[in-house]
């Protein structure tokens, strides 16, 4: 494999890993607070649709982004209403949210644009275009390092850089702030947090707001940056891969970066090569596509390091009287 090929595969790794990363961090906030969220997929889908639709109508990618985040937040709050306020089953609520998103995006999309559920292709002003970092072109002549800077690090949309910055930000919020400490505590032992006089409900809603915003960014990136417009079911299981990455990362931010980029790399490989010949074995692309799921099952099985979720995850909190 040549250097050029490697750079181009790594470049698409970043592009394909970014939505996974944003969604994975979204899930991290929610699950660390004790709310299982299998509705990442649905929130991304709604955000992708609204972003593309509003960006198309206003010719402004930023307005699209805001609309996407708003849509994702609404869905996140439905999840909160069901799983926090009414203490319903969080998994069932997640399933409902994913289905609702699949249905409503096509229904509304068909009504607005008459294109079978998609939006028209976005022009450049309605998209987040690639940013050239300073000196990228000047340094591109430098062997290896210059090429890496020019082609791998520079030349992504602003949302990619936001996603990468979100990793240290998440780490800082979660492990260095009072809010983060309380958030982690509420996912492990909510009654202790309640005893300390901190609102369990408030913290969990707070976590879901962050989840909604991050899913909004993820969805918006899909339709206004990675692609130029929305297509029916365009998230294509990415919310579930993000969920898998979250388990893979054992609910920790830096590991989430590693896991999502690894899954992004697998996706980049399977897009580039139909089959991979490793000498004695030919690996079909279907296997590459399924690999994130297989690896997650292996990790969940606890044969290679045990993935232990936050202890209070999935349990509605009932205040003692």
């Amino acid at each position: 494999m040549s250097f050029e090929t490697l750079i181009s595969i790594l470049d698409s790794t970043i592009r394909l890993g970014t939505p996974l990363l944003l969604a994975c961090l979204a899930g991290l906030f929610s699950e660390r607070s004790g709310i299982f969220d299998i509705g990442l997929e649905g929130k991304m889908l709604v955000a992708a649709f609204l972003s593309a639709a509003v960006a198309y109508l206003t010719h402004n990618a930023w307005l699209g982004l805001l609309a996407g985040i708003a849509g994702s937040l609404v869905f996140s709050m439905i999840h909160g209403l069901a799983s926090i306020t009414f203490r319903g089953n969080q998994l069932i609520s997640g399933v409902a949210i994913n289905m609702l998103a699949s249905g409503i995006t096509v229904l509304v999309g068909q009504n607005w644009f008459h294109l079978g559920g998609g939006t028209p292709a976005l022009s450049d002003s309605a998209r987040f275009n690639d940013i050239t970092l300073p000196l990228a072109k000047t340094l591109s002549g430098v062997p290896y390092l210059g090429r890496i800077y020019d082609q791998l690090i520079s030349g992504h949309s602003i949302l990619v850089y936001v996603a990468f910055l979100a990793v240290p930000a998440t780490w800082w919020v979660l492990f260095k702030t009072r809010f983060g400490l309380r958030l982690r505590a509420v996912g492990e032992n909510p009654s202790a947090v309640d005893t300390a006089g901190v609102s369990v409900v408030g913290l969990r809603y707070g976590a879901l707001v962050i989840t909604g915003i991050l899913c909004g960014l993820a969805g918006s990136y899909l339709s206004t940056s990675l692609a130029a417009g929305f297509g029916k079911e365009m998230t294509a299981g990415r919310g579930y891969i993000a969920l898998a990455a979250l388990i893979f990362a054992k609910w920790r931010p830096w590991q989430a970066l590693g896991a999502t980029m690894f899954f992004g790399f697998l996706a980049a490989l399977s897009i580039r090569y139909a089959t991979i010949d490793i000498g004695f074995l030919v690996i079909p692309s279907e296997f590459m596509d399924a690999l994130p799921y297989i690896l997650t099952v292996v990790i969940l099985a606890g044969f290679v390091g045990k993935a232990i979720p936050p202890r209070a995850g999935g349990e509605p909190y009932v205040k003692e009287r």
Partner: peptide, 28 residues
Amino acid sequence: TTIPPQLIWVIQALVILFTGALDNMVRM
């Protein structure tokens, strides 16, 4: 009509939401 078949997904999702996750909202 102009209503796409995905309407069913919406109805289905709402049924799951209200009979499953939001059961307490109705029950209380």
